[in-house]
Design a binder for these strands. Structure first.
Length: 217
DNA sequence: CAGAGGATCGGCT
DNA sequence: GCCGATCCTCTGG
């Protein structure tokens, strides 16, 4: 028997204790490495239909700062990367390898191109919907948003989100519920340029982190 | 205007 | 661990 007292009532789509605080631009550190570390443990929340949300805890990020040959902004602004040059807390979404989208958050003052790649999240709410978006019913919860392309698919994030201001737009929200995982650092994943820089950050012990186990001790 | 390459993923050896 | 899929963007001629 389950929920005998709430028979017929719709299940709450989203509940945290304590409820998360929405993070605005002023709450977010500027600076690429600082924001990459700060975002570990924070909540990524995407409201969908009927008051429901998709939500997950960010467990892996990578920094792409100034003077970084691996950054899309390294050679200056282009049509694609313009969101990287907006004030910090703007969203940059791009297509990689013709198959996956990647979600980034801009990190510096206007005119400076830099961003943090959101690489993985632990699903917390809207999990059935995420599994449907992935179209992989066999996956465990902690596999749904593991890896930057998978995260975008699980959250339904596509180029329509490119340029969105996390401070002002209701389509995507950063939240803080007070959790503070222990943070580890490593080299970034999948790069050919500047591969030695330890600009990847992750939540120690999370099963939702991508990459070989040895990268996330 | 052609061509190379890419912040990935999933399947296969 | 290796490889192909798939397509957009940027670069160079």
């Amino acid at each position: 028997m389950k929920s005998p007292t709430s028979k017929g009532a719709p299940a709450p789509s989203f509940s945290f204790a304590p409820p998360p605080k929405r993070l605005r631009r002023a709450d977010l550190p500027a600076g690429t490495l600082d924001l990459a570390r700060f975002l570990i443990g924070k909540l990524l929340i995407r409201p969908i239909d009927g008051g429901a949300v998709l939500a997950g805890r960010i467990v892996e990020t990578e920094a792409y700062g100034t003077d970084d040959p691996a950054s899309h902004a390294y050679r200056g602004p282009t049509k694609r990367n313009r969101a990287m040059f907006e004030a910090h807390a703007h969203v940059y979404v791009y297509l990689i390898y013709g198959t996956s989208y990647c979600l980034n958050v801009s990190t510096e003052e206007p005119g400076i191109g830099a961003a943090v790649l959101i690489r993985a999240a632990e699903p917390l709410a809207g999990i059935a919907r995420m599994r449907a978006l992935r179209d992989r019913p066999e996956l465990r919860d902690d596999e749904l948003a593991r890896g930057p392309g998978n995260l975008c698919r699980a959250f339904g994030i596509d180029p329509a989100f490119d340029g969105l201001d996390l401070d002002a737009d209701a389509r995507l929200i950063l939240g803080d519920d007070g959790a503070q995982p222990e943070i580890g650092a490593s080299v970034r994943i999948g790069l050919t340029k500047a591969a030695e820089r330890e600009h990847r950050f992750y939540a120690r012990g999370s099963r939702a982190v991508s990459g070989r186990r040895s990268l996330s001790p």
